[in-house]
Every structure is written in structure tokens, then in C-alpha cells.
């Protein structure tokens, strides 16, 4: 039997690829967009991503002594806010699997004079290199849809979260209004790749972004995945008509 026939496949956007290939393909996407990531975020969302992140902070209920893990933290928007909200007893770890994104985030924060209490860790969400029951809060903004084995990542996150701790996922989701969905589809598949081409000289990565959002589990499915991983009191809040959803759950 051919070796490839036995390999498990997964989606990379609308394409089916071998599971072992997905990570390298995702890495290539983020390597390509890292330097223009913030600018593209502002352009693509028309600045609304700041409101989504703000809502995440409001829902996080972070206290000054908390140990916080910002997973898939990218250019550090959330980690920056958390670093300002914690004191010497607290800790903020900005983790990302992609070295280019992590470097961009670290350089950006250092340029803004933010040094402590942020620590930078290149880590895979599927096997987090932290001890059990360590973090009070874990956030993952716009990262879960790029993870190959989401269930494994959720279990890994559950493991490192303290009992009583809260996990928040901010992620693109599925609009609840059909008319709005049609407009959003047109925007994602027609305008987004053009913007990507113009700004980051990379339309493929933004084509992948639009496709990966469609392949990401919807609000209810993601919530049940969280419950299966062990999270309790799970809920979600739709933002901008469901373009983005903020899921949260506790470990007890």
C-alpha cells in the first residue's frame, strides 16, 4: 500500500492536504503576511478588530495578579493590554507557533516600551510547554482555525489552565443573517484577495484566510468541542452579526 494512502488528511482552506503538510503551509502563509499583518488587519476589518479585542478584554476579567497566556498572540495586541493590567505578581506570556509573527510582535512591543511582564514563547497549541494548572486566563485570538488538531489543542489548553481559570477564543465565525452572509462572502472572496495583493503582495494567503474561515466550525460546534475538552459554563457572543464570535469557558 502506498504510504500516502494511509495518511490522514485535513483541510487547508478548501483544499485537502496531508495533516503533516498543513502546519508548514500555515507557517508559509504567516511568514508571508507577518510584516504587514497589523496594517492588513486594520484594512480588512476597517478597524473593527480593535472592538472585538476590546470585548475580549472586558470578558476576560483579568486581575492584576493573574498569569495570562495569549496563544497565537501574533503581533501582541492582547498581550500589550494584559501587560498593562497586571502587576509584578502577574505574568503575561505571548505564545505563537510562527517565529516570524512572534518576532514582529516582540519588536513591536519593545518599540512601544513594553518589556515586562511579557515573555515570548514559540509554542504549538497542541502540546503546550507549560506545567499543569498554571494559567488564570488563556486567550486565543484568530488562531484556532489554523490549528490542525483543534480537539488536541483544546485539551492541551485545558491542561495548563488553573481550576477556576477562564479560556477565551476570539475567532472568525459564521454570520447569522443570510443577506449579510452574501455581502460578506462577496467581500471575502472578491475584495480580500485584491487587498492582499495590493498591500502584502500576496493574494493567496488572503484567499486562504477567507477559505479557512468557512471551514472553521460554527459557533455551536465550537462550543460543543470546548465542552468535550472539559470546559464548563461555555458560552459565546456573536459580534458584527456573527462574523466573529467570542467563545468562553471555565475549568472547574
Amino acid at each position: 500500500m502506498d504510504h500516502n494512502d494511509t495518511q490522514h488528511t485535513t483541510h487547508f482552506g478548501y483544499k485537502q492536504v496531508a495533516e503533516s503538510e498543513k502546519q508548514s503551509k500555515v507557517t508559509a502563509v504567516f511568514d508571508s503576511v507577518a510584516s504587514q499583518y497589523d496594517l492588513m488587519n486594520d484594512l480588512m476589518s476597517m478597524g473593527i478588530h480593535r472592538i472585538w479585542k476590546r470585548k475580549t478584554i472586558e470578558q476576560s476579567g483579568v486581575k492584576s495578579h493573574h498569569k495570562i497566556l495569549d496563544l497565537a498572540g501574533g503581533t501582541g495586541d492582547l498581550a500589550k493590554e494584559f501587560s498593562n493590567m497586571t502587576n509584578a505578581n502577574g505574568q503575561v506570556i505571548l505564545a505563537d507557533i510562527n517565529a516570524a509573527m512572534l518576532e514582529c510582535g516582540r519588536d513591536k512591543l519593545i518599540d512601544q516600551g513594553i518589556i515586562s511582564p511579557i515573555q515570548y514563547v514559540q509554542a504549538d497549541a497542541e502540546c503546550l510547554p507549560f506545567k499543569d494548572n498554571y494559567f488564570d486566563r488563556i486567550t486565543m485570538a484568530f488562531g484556532l482555525r489554523n490549528v490542525t488538531h483543534k480537539e488536541q489543542a483544546l485539551k492541551s489548553i485545558f491542561r495548563v489552565l488553573k481550576p477556576g481559570g477562564k479560556f477565551l477564543i476570539l475567532e472568525f465565525s459564521h454570520p447569522d443573517n443570510q443577506l449579510f452572509k452574501k455581502i460578506y462572502d462577496q467581500y471575502s472572496f472578491k475584495l480580500l484577495p485584491v487587498l492582499g495583493k495590493l498591500i502584502a503582495n500576496d493574494s493567496d494567503s488572503y484567499q486562504y484566510l477567507a477559505e479557512s474561515i468557512r471551514m472553521h466550525p460554527n459557533q455551536e460546534t465550537l462550543m460543543s468541542m470546548m465542552q468535550q475538552a472539559g470546559f464548563e459554563k461555555c458560552q459565546y457572543i456573536n459580534m458584527t452579526s456573527g462574523i466573529v464570535a467570542l467563545h468562553s469557558g471555565y475549568k472547574f
Partner: peptide, 16 residues
């Protein structure tokens, strides 16, 4: 009103 290290955050809700 959340008093952070060098600023104050004003929020309409806060889960704490």
C-alpha cells in the same frame, strides 16, 4: 474603571 499601571480603562462591563 480598571486602574492599570499607567492608565485607566473605562468599560461598560467587566467579568470580575
Amino acid at each position: 474603571f480598571y486602574f492599570s499601571n499607567n492608565s485607566i480603562k473605562v468599560m461598560s462591563e467587566y467579568e470580575s
